[in-house]
Design a protein around this nucleic acid. Structure first.
Lengths: 352, 352
DNA sequence: TGATATACTGTGACCGCTCACATCTCCCAG
DNA sequence: CTGGGAGATGTGAGCGGTCACAGTATATCA
């Protein structure tokens, strides 16, 4: 079942191959009768253009590369979903590279040079140095970094992590919490520091002391939340609220708290960050800081396509403001309802 | 920053373009000295082959298409993750098409004919008729259907849904449950019927009556579980256990039960199907029927690659047996066993 | 009536590579 | 010393399109 070529269609329709090409590409300079003839031949031979030949000739592929280190994570999956939708609307395809955390840069580099893709969307974090990322961004190749967290000259879509963390912390403070535990992200990711900074900003703003024993490192995964919660419960004076720096960790936190017989939010409040899809359907529905993940993926794709089409040439520098979404995992601290700010009325519930 | 071509490299190295091609493709018939010379020129010019030109010439693309209707669903994401990993190991790329539930067949068809991809993995369900799927499978194009549920002549990787559902139901029966609610999948998907059949098999085997009021349709999404649970709770004599036909619905079920003040598994047991990643970290950890999702994705990719490479020509007909994974969302019905339920932590609390 | 614009169609070269085959060296057996 | 085979390299054609340009009709105008 060989595929028909443009010349075979031409022979069948009794025209030249160029005319067939014109018909395929909707060039106006074709007589209606000829067009019909060619269309017929195309249908009869079940002809479809060879995308690689077109690509070679036009020097483009109509494929956009998307690099992430895991598609199994809901966070990335939701961004990719947005990208996929936008690309489909553009008639373009998506080459998905799950590079793991190793050799991402190598993958990116070879992909970029292979002419297989016209542009690339990179979902950070990227396991590479800032310098390498800067070099990458400096190339002429159409490129968008999504969730950029450091300061380089590149096209990026980011969110104001510091502000988001500030909002999360402020929300807890305004509910009356004074002892707020923080489970941060991995410290080798800039985002972790930004969110810690936002947490500190809020404490400072409200005149609360910064207590390092209330800050613990996490891994942005479920297990990090579990470990963090376990740590807090082991303290003599556990926090009344926990800010987990992403939703996955928040879920781990909630689970561990439950396992220890604590109710969320009655006994202890938990707030997350990201607003992945599960956040709204978890039990209890998670109060969190919303990142417009789908939107970010969509915008990145649309920008890239515009650059490729020559419609857009400005640098993309988009910092979105995350939004507090109050659901049911946060509440005023126990017993606050009666007295104003007495937070010391811990019931001394035993952990374990 | 024009890309160097093979002829430029040849000129620089003082050899013919064919020799450069030989070096690139590790053809043995090249003198070591020449090889070194060419390698040097390649490095100096920072040459990378144009994948589209290679593809056009060799008539392949080293890209595998993966079609799903959503990447945001953890079920599909985990399969895709397995596929991605396997393809990367093969030095191939993945073109991901999220076709939504509309026009999947059209997407598939045009993709297949475009020569953009060498083979295709389709993650069912597919919004198309069995006949169309059969036609698709009948083409020479390398194709694997993952999670195939109906009987057509195609390469497929499936799981024994009926058996899995039987196991799930049996597990509940053996725990002592006699009133078992079923929340099925959408009835337009064959898998729904298969799982219902497995449920019925188990009832029959254990001499339990089939009560249609205990069977309700779901949508394989969170909301279906919520609606199903709400329905059961409205019955005069609610079931003591619920089999939700996938994990997402199981989560929805658990959530609704909790909201109504019921504890899982103390007051009512819930079992799911799929074993998506969240199942092991939910609260309580979900008893479910495990599908080896990652594995399925991996196997599909490996098979496709073998077919393309001509290593494999047999039809792929793989029906995996799902496996019962007992976690903490199932227990004997209330009051049945005085001692046996000590396997579950008793800290479940009623909320609200 | 011929010049010229206009609508349409065809030809050659090329995109960057691979393939099949031709050629050219060199070395060794007869 | 010469023929032949192996090793190494070069050449032409082609993959299936597109582009720029060159044609060829027909219509329009002076």
């Amino acid at each position: 079942m060989r595929r028909a070529t443009i010349r075979e269609v031409a022979r069948r329709a009794g025209v030249s191959y160029q005319t067939v090409s014109r018909v395929i590409n909707n060039h106006p300079m074709v007589a209606a009768s000829t067009r019909a003839l060619v269309r017929e031949a195309i249908a009869e031979l079940n002809y479809h253009p060879n995308a690689q030949a077109v690509g070679l000739s036009r020097n483009r592929a109509d494929i956009i590369g998307v690099i992430t280190h895991s598609i199994a994570s809901p966070f990335f999956a939701q961004i990719v979903d947005g990208t996929a939708q936008a690309l489909q609307a553009q008639g373009r395809f998506m080459l998905l590279g799950c590079a793991g955390m190793t050799s991402q840069l190598e993958t990116i580099d070879s992909l970029q040079r292979s002419r297989r893709i016209d542009g690339m969307i990179i979902l950070l974090p990227l396991s590479t140095s800032v310098e390498a990322a800067q070099r990458l961004a400096a190339s002429q190749f159409p490129l968008v970094l999504v969730d950029l967290q450091y300061d380089i000259d590149a096209n990026y879509i980011a969110i104001d992590n510091r502000h988001g963390a500030y909002n999360a912390t402020e929300h807890l403070i305004e509910l009356g919490h004074r002892q707020i535990g923080l489970i941060s992200g991995p410290l080798n990711q800039p985002v972790a520091h930004l969110r810690i900074a936002g947490y500190q900003d809020a404490l400072r703003k409200y005149g609360l002391p910064y207590d390092p024993t209330l800050v613990v490192n996490g891994d942005f995964a479920h297990s990090g939340g579990e470990a963090g919660a376990a740590h807090f419960l082991s303290l003599d004076d556990p926090p009344t609220a926990i800010f987990a720096c992403n939703d996955q960790m928040a879920f781990g936190t909630v689970r561990t708290l439950r396992r220890h017989g604590l109710r969320v939010p009655d006994d202890i409040s938990v707030i997350g960050f990201d607003d992945i899809a599960e956040a709204s359907v978890s039990y209890p529905p998670l109060t969190t800081i919303r990142q417009p993940l789908f939107e970010m993926g969509r915008l990145a794709a649309e920008y890239i396509c515009h650059v490729i089409d020559g419609v857009e040439s400005e640098r993309l520098r988009l910092t979105l403001t995350p939004e507090l979404v109050v659901r049911n995992s946060t509440a005023p601290p126990r017993g606050l309802s009666s007295a104003a700010d007495s937070l010391v009325d811990k019931t001394g519930q035993s952990v374990l």
